[in-house]
Amino acid sequence: MKQETNQEYLLEIKDLTTAFLFDGKPVPVTVNVSYGIKKGEILGIVGESGSGKSVTVKSVLRLLPSPPSSILNGEIYFHGQNLLTLKEKEMQKIRGNKISMIFQEPMTSLNPVYTCGNQITETIMLHQHLSKEEALKKAARMLDLVGIPAPESRLKSYPHQLSGGMRQRVMIAMALSCEPELLIADEPTTALDPTIQAQIITLIKELRDSIGLSVMYITHDLAVVAEICDRVVVMYAGMVMEIAEIRDLFHAPLHPYTQGLMQAMPRINQQSEMLYNIPGMVPHATQMPTGCRFQPRCPYATEVCSQACPELVDAGDGHMVRCFHYEKLRKERVQNG
C-alpha cells in the first residue's frame, strides 16, 4: 500500500500474521491480514468462530500472551507509529487511553468485588492523573453519557446489582472514560436480548456522531452489521476475504463465502422452507486446505482454487475481494437482476 492511503487511516493493520503454538510448533491463525479504519468510521469485522477476527484485534492491543502466541509478521500503525515496536510501558499509555476495548461478556469482564465507581475511576486516575474526587465526577458524567439513570448512586453499585444491559453500559462508560479515539467492541451485544442490543447499537452510533469516535465492531451477526457499520471486513479461516462499503457488501457481495453467509441467515421478512447452508465447517488452523481456504466448502470452486491462494484484489471502487471467480458472481447477479 502507498504512503497516501496511510494518511486516511487512524489505525492500519498491514500483513499481520499471528501464530499460536500447536504441539510446540507455531501455526499461523491469521495470515497477512491488512485493513484500516478511518476516523469516525464504524468498521464491521465479520466472520464465524475461528476466523481470526478477535486474534487480529487482540494483536492490535498486544493482549495476547506470548507464548503461546507470537506475531510472525506485520505492522500495526496508529497515528503513524508502529504499535508492535513499542515498549510495554508505552503500550500501556495507549491501551485503555487512546484505544479501548469492550468484550462480549459484561458478566465476566467486571470485577465482582469492586463497585462500578471503583472500576471506572481506576482507569481515569491511571491515565488522566485526576484526583479521586474529580475522577468520581467524571465517572458519573460517563455513566450519564451512556444513558444510565441516577449515575451518582449507580457508582456505588456492585456489578451483580445491575442487569446485563446496564453492565455492558458500564463497560462502555469505562472504555470511553479516557476519551479514546478508537473503540474496539468484540461481540458487545451477542449475549444480550434484542431489546438491549438495540439500545447499545443506538448508543454506539450516537457516540460516533457526537464525539467522532471510531469503532471496530466485531460480530458474526450480519443483521447487526447492516444496522451499524459503514464498511465491513469479512474474514474466514484467518484471512481477509472481502472488504466493502456496507451497501456494496449487502447488495453485491463478491465472495462466495459472504454470499453464503447472507443466504444462511433466516430473515424475519421472508418465508423459506429450508435455509441455504454452507456445507462443512471452518477448518482447524493445523489442517488448512491447499489453495484458497474456502475452496472445500465453495460452490464455485474449480481446479485452480485448490492449486493457488487468490490475492486480495480491488474489484473496483475500493471493493476488495479474495476470489478467482468474483467476476462470475458479479455476472450472475446482473443476469438475475
Binding site: 442490543q197 447499537i201 443483521a223 444496522e227 451497501r247 424475519i268
Partner: peptide
C-alpha cells in the same frame, strides 16, 4: 411490537424505528 421493532434487519437501506421500552 416493541420486541419486534428491536430485531435488526439485514438490509442497510432499511431504516427501522426501534421503540425503546
Amino acid at each position: 411490537q416493541a420486541l419486534m421493532s428491536a430485531v435488526p434487519i439485514p438490509d442497510p437501506d432499511v431504516k427501522r424505528k426501534t421503540m425503546i421500552i
